[in-house]
Amino acid sequence: MGLFNFFKKEKKKNTANLAKERLQILIAHEHADKSKKSPDYLPKLRDEIVQVIRKYVHVADSDVNVNVENGDDYDVLELNITLPESAK
């Protein structure tokens, strides 16, 4: 029995490592969120932009990217739209 347990123990999953990995990812993410300080209106702005573009070209939701970057004394609103091939 002792011999079996000895080998079984070696195979047991190391959950502490898993905890560390999860925490590192989570905390990096939360810090990024905080430093980005995206304005609250961003999702709504994005939706409305998509609607306007769709009047002319059909784009998928995922083709429109809205991003705010914080500079030292200025913020940049970045708008990235990927047009479908057929629109050209």
């Binding site: 047991k12 999953k13 959950t15 502490a16 490592n17 560390k20 925490l23």
Partner: peptide, 16 residues
Amino acid sequence: RVEGGDMLGMDDIVEI
């Protein structure tokens, strides 16, 4: 429990 891999070690917590 740290040695058994069931608990976060102090070095890991300090690092995080």
